[in-house]
């Protein structure tokens, strides 16, 4: 990017105007593809609709419509969330419970809460048949969002006694176990 800047200043060489450079460091490949001006571009097209700066927060906050057939019901997060401190006392009480870590294996390598079992969200469906509907099931992830997604999947399979660690393992590290590495 610095080189392209310098070329423009000097007026030397061929700038990347009209080309998109793609870099893949794992394959160590550089490719460039032609890119064209869109005549219907809202900014630089023939009939632009953007003639001054807009509200970019709103512009980027657009969500996908929910896929058809999926229940529009929102999960009541507050009803299923549990604090780090409460989870800690439940684990320490020794009562029967199942603790699931729904993060991915490279995250599990960094830190984990005993006695959790790794059931990544990306393959979560395949673990569901191995779970017992009678158990109290506690789920956690990094920040507490993916565990709610997994919890919803379990609800749809008829599971009832479900809990999600609010704020995830990051909150746990902050509030309950300061010796735990964070990422």
């Amino acid at each position: 990017m610095a080189t392209e800047t310098i070329k423009l200043i000097l007026g030397q060489g061929e700038p990347l105007i009209g080309r998109l450079m793609l870099y893949d460091s794992l394959r160590m490949q550089f490719r460039d593809v032609r890119i064209r001006k869109d005549p219907n571009c809202e900014l630089c097209g023939e009939n632009p609709s953007i003639t001054e700066l807009i509200d970019y927060e709103a512009f980027c906050a657009v969500e996908l419509p929910a896929p058809s057939g999926q229940s529009p019901e929102e999960l009541d997060a507050a009803a299923v969330e549990i604090s780090a401190a409460d989870l800690k006392s439940i684990i320490e009480s020794g009562q029967s419970m199942t603790l699931l870590d729904v993060r991915e294996p490279h995250e599990w390598e960094i830190n984990r809460i005993d006695p959790a079992r790794l059931t990544p969200l990306s393959k979560f469906e395949q673990f569901i048949s191995e779970l017992n509907r009678e158990d109290e099931i506690y789920l956690y992830c990094y920040k507490g969002k993916r565990s709610l997604t997994a919890l919803k999947q379990l609800q749809e399979h008829g599971f009832k006694n479900l809990h999600s660690l609010a704020g995830g393992i990051d909150k746990w590290a902050e509030e309950v176990d300061p010796s735990m590495p964070r990422y």
């Binding site: 700038p15 998109l20 450079m21 893949d24 630089c44």
Partner: peptide, 10 residues
């Protein structure tokens, strides 16, 4: 591991 770059001067 991936990046992209271009110069826009419409």
């Amino acid at each position: 591991f991936e990046g992209q770059m271009s110069v826009f001067h419409p």
